[in-house]
């Protein structure tokens, strides 16, 4: 086993002895000195999780979160030095973590927080001037495929995930029921927005590159045809449409 292999393994396993061949001042044992590296690794990654998932942390309590994040970072250390994206495995971890099995919504709250972070760092794009839409007929619009902003994210949840998130930002207690949440970034700050019932399927279809007409056919039964206006309005108002693709409508 290589030196760094043993070193790395011992960093992530608190009960392992430090690897052989290390020493402190005057050739004495390196125990406490190795623990500094061990603590730097785990504490800094836990801190990254605390920064990245503030609402999950508030929901379970700071002390519990620190212990849970400790288990997570040891099992799933980052796969790249870009810590801005660290924690993509956290929702799946939460869904399988027995001590939070009674908090079924927790994984979706984590997905929402991850999506907000991804949106924050996504590429910039110039939004479409909403007035341009008035120059098209309804038939034109149905054929068009929208070019959506790179910062756009969609979270579809069986839980009132946005209500839970908003309750931790000074909002009222959430009402039960599923929610589809759109994350848009009009400037530099991502905004989570509640979609009309069933709107998530339409957004998902648009993100796949389907035309507006085809996307509407994907809508769930609770989605009314008139809801498409509200949906387009939400997208336009938050700078989420950047143009059109294909069919000679490149903006």
């Amino acid at each position: 086993m290589s030196g760094q292999h043993a070193f790395a393994a011992a960093l992530l396993a608190p009960r392992l002895d430090p690897p052989a061949g290390l020493h402190g001042r005057g050739g004495r044992g390196a125990g406490r000195r190795f623990d500094i590296y061990r603590n730097n690794v785990v504490a800094s990654l836990i801190a990254a999780m605390e920064t990245g998932f503030p609402v999950v942390r508030a929901l379970v309590g700071a002390e519990f979160f620190t212990a849970m994040a400790g288990e997570f970072v040891r099992a799933h250390p980052p796969s790249s030095p870009r810590l801005m994206l660290y924690g993509t495995a956290f929702p799946v971890f939460l869904a399988a973590f027995a001590p939070v099995a009674h908090l079924g919504y927790l994984a979706d709250v984590a997905r929402l927080e991850l999506a907000l972070r991804e949106s924050y760092h996504a590429a910039d794009a110039t939004p479409l001037d909403p007035r341009i839409l008035t120059t098209y007929t309804a038939e034109d619009l149905a054929r068009m495929r929208l070019r959506l902003a790179p910062a756009l994210r969609l979270i579809r949840s069986d839980w009132p995930v946005l209500g839970i998130w908003q309750a931790h930002h000074g909002g009222r207690p959430p009402q039960p029921g599923p929610q589809d949440v759109l994350i848009a970034r009009p400037g530099f700050d991502p905004v989570p927005l509640l979609l009309p019932q069933g709107g998530g399927a339409v957004i998902a279809a648009l993100k796949e590159g389907k035309s507006l007409g085809s996307a509407l056919e994907c809508a769930d039964s609770e989605f009314q045809d008139s809801d498409i206006l509200e949906l387009l309005n939400i997208l336009l108002k938050h700078g989420a449409i950047c143009g059109f693709q294909g069919e000679g409508h490149n903006a």
Binding site: Q4, F7, A8, L11, Y37, S44, P81, L83
Partner: peptide, 17 residues
């Protein structure tokens, strides 16, 4: 220093001989 081993990024500046 080193900070990555076998694809895991350890987020610290680790020593080498």
């Amino acid at each position: 220093a080193w900070s990555t081993h076998e694809g895991a990024y350890l987020n610290d500046l680790l020593p080498l001989p």
